[in-house]
Amino acid sequence: MGRIGERFAELEAEGRKAFVAYVMAGDPDFDRSLEVVRGLPAAGVDVIELGLPFTDPMADGPTIQLAGQRALAAGMTLKRTLALAREFRKGDRATPIVLMGYYNPIFSHGVDRFLRDAKAAGIDGLIVVDLPPEEDAELCLPALAQGIDFIRLATPTTDDARLPAVLRNTSGFVYYVSITGITGSAVAEAREVGPEVARIKAATDLPVVVGFGIRDPEAAKEIAGTADGCVVGSAIVARIADGEPAEDVLAYVAALAKGAHAA
């Protein structure tokens, strides 16, 4: 069992829901990004999703797109993203890190080389939004062979016919996208999310966490209560974009985590 499995087992034993936070690596620059990432565990974050900047993030809304552009403009690359993870690991060997992004930078780096480098940097899981289950041989299966979890997205349009393919070879947890559309585009509704999460959990023993459309502690509590945890990304990234000091961003994250953990 890797760090992701261990963390969810710990949370289950404690009777707590998971709080997962997404930030874009290198936004607005390497040093300030690292400062925020280093502060996430103390703010109550159970799993860190680290965004990999990319020039064509088709599943992301304006907030995440602009974060990626700022990171790229500041010189962020896949190599520097892994360097940021290595720096974080110098002070934290326990918090799981999931690298979230698109396949092109990984393909350009070379899959075998990427997996070796990611493992050495302390990456525990991958979310690659533009690789469907039909392409598992590209990255999913090699990642699993290296002990790196491959986390799949399920959405409101993932029907019962499609769900088995989505769950096949998925590990770590299942990320349920609570809305149809791009990141940051709507507000999640627990009454709609709950039945969908129950449907997914009936088909897998993996934890299910819910993301997209969560912006305040009350929503974090409500949505986490329908699942095994929740994810907040755009709302955190927006505060970084506004130039808030790291301590203020982390205070906001701590409030969200408190909400999720109260579920």
Rank of each mutant, 00 (worst) to 15 (best):
A74G: 03
V166C: 13
A188H: 07
G233T: 04
L11S: 06
R3D: 07
A21Y: 12
E192A: 13
K119W: 11
G91R: 14
Q69G: 02
G172I: 07
R239C: 00
G211C: 06
G15F: 09
G26C: 07
L167P: 10
A254R: 15
A42N: 06
F173W: 15
E10C: 09
A219M: 14
A165W: 13
G101D: 03
E247G: 02
A120T: 08
E35Q: 14
Q65W: 07
N169G: 01
V231Y: 09
D160Q: 10
L52Q: 12
H109W: 14
M100P: 05
A21L: 12
A238E: 15
A9P: 08
D136Y: 01
Y252L: 00
Q69W: 05
Y175S: 01
A94E: 14
Q65M: 12
A73C: 11
D56C: 10
L40I: 10
G259S: 02
A154N: 04
A143Y: 04
I236Y: 12
A25R: 12
I123D: 07
M24L: 07
M76L: 13
G243F: 02
D60Y: 05
L52T: 03
F114I: 06
P57K: 04
S171D: 06
M24Q: 13
Y103M: 12
I236V: 13
A120Q: 14
L167E: 06
R191I: 00
I97N: 05
S234F: 05
L52D: 11
A161C: 02
D130L: 10
K90P: 08
T170M: 12
A220S: 13
H109Q: 15
G194P: 00
A186V: 07
E247R: 14
G213E: 14
R116T: 13
K119S: 14
A145P: 02
V166S: 08
T81C: 15
